[in-house]
Design a protein around this nucleic acid. Sequence first.
DNA 1: GCCCAGGGATGCG
DNA 2: CGCATCCATGGG
Length: 278
Amino acid sequence: MNIERLKDKIIIHDPQDFNVEQTLNCGQIFRYQIDDNHAQVCSKDKFAELYTYPDRIEIISSDLDYFYNFFDFERDYSIIKKELTKDEFLFPAVKYGYGIRILNNDPYEMIISFIISANNNIGRIKRSIEYLCSHFGKNMGKYFAFPTLDELKSVTIEDYKNAGLGYRAEQMYETVQTLTIDALDNLKSVSRTEQLNYLVSLKGIGEKVANCILLFGLGAKDVFPVDTWINKVYNNLTKSNEHDREKITRELTARYGNLSGFAQQYFFYYYRENKIKV
DNA sequence: GCCCAGGGATGCG
DNA sequence: CGCATCCATGGG
């Protein structure tokens, strides 16, 4: 794989470590659209278009620097995959999702998005977030920006219910009122323990959602968010019927160490796409 | 009608 | 502390 950074586009030649569909469909992002070989991706107030050809992928955006980092192009995924395919459990999952990359998304957007994700399904999560963007975010012409914290501050519980948040509407309202720009900035520079403590202190955020925010928004790769799918993964691999998610988190984090976040995404995508049950 | 979805909050012992 | 129950909503 060779990444060519041009003035008006990024070209990924021979993309063995990047697949658009896999990267977008593995549950880490909700603001995107794929039709055939063309995809549109939003993050914050930014927008990119991706074209997949037989021999290359081209990325076009008015902010290529942002999306170069967003798609994690500084990292060599071939090394990660080589290490993780040594694991017998993970081998088929890495083969299947060979082109997954973990996005460097905006922590504030991840906080809002993953509060919505709790006990929810991806289709509904996408719809709710689209609703928030189109009703409360800035109209950018071809798309809507993610609503800023300031914009969300004036959104009511009733608005959140209209967005389909259900019982999460009150949690969202309270967390939005609690959040400040300073606290969000501060979150990027404090220790892991302080990040986790702060996130869990917010309404609607427990251990799993906090780990998703750390993984997708704050660059932490040694975390292993355990949702219903990962619960199935664990029970399938260990032939057990465990429901203690803290225990599952501990064991999987211990097994995959500083590559936990990658392992988690390969597992999640493989099991969910193939509807593998216990 | 039941079960499930990238779980979390709350109350009870 | 562990554990059970409840929580909106829509698709399968």
